[in-house]
């Protein structure tokens, strides 16, 4: 089990935060382009999922899995999007992502008046709290 990387996007599609722990392969494009590609993919996937759903859905997109990794997606009603890429064997981590939102993002970004919610997050405190949070998760590998 392992956690590869995290993206946090705001509603407008700005990547507020990116961090990687165990990423082994580069995308071969600039980071800025990668963010755009990621956001565009999520945007399309969300609309794809909601249009093709045969029943009314409350949650919409929550994750997708390939043979190599799993992308976990969490979106708040305010449009904040958290994307955590993990090992494909990780189960449903919706609650974990909500905790990450409420215990780390809200506490150290929203409640920090110096953090602009439209700009990439520069707060060192947020950075270290997030790192701490992720490293305490059961599916973060012990090395």
């Amino acid at each position: 089990m392992t956690i590869y990387n995290i993206y946090i996007f705001n509603r407008a599609g700005t990547c507020l935060y990116y961090h990687e722990w165990n990423r082994k392969k580069r995308s071969g494009m600039s980071q800025e382009e990668e963010f755009k590609l990621m956001f565009g993919m999520l945007f399309s996937l969300k609309s794809f999922v909601s249009r093709l759903s045969p029943t009314d859905q409350i949650q919409g997109l929550s994750s997708y899995r390939t043979s190599q990794y799993k992308l976990n997606f969490y979106e708040t009603p305010s449009g904040l999007k958290i994307i955590l890429n993990t090992d494909f064997s990780v189960g449903n981590i919706k609650d974990t992502l909500h905790q990450l939102y409420s215990q780390v993002f809200v506490e150290y970004v929203v409640k920090n008046p110096i953090c602009d919610q439209d700009q990439p997050i520069k707060s060192e405190l947020f950075n270290s709290k997030l790192d701490e949070f992720v490293k305490s998760l059961p599916f973060y590998p012990e090395t």
Binding site: I58, T76, F105, V110
Partner: peptide, 16 residues
């Protein structure tokens, strides 16, 4: 308001 909503959503866990 634009900040308090995040606190509200995080604490209440209310959806759309």
């Amino acid at each position: 308001g634009i900040r308090i909503i995040e606190d509200f959503l995080a604490r209440s866990g209310i959806g759309r």
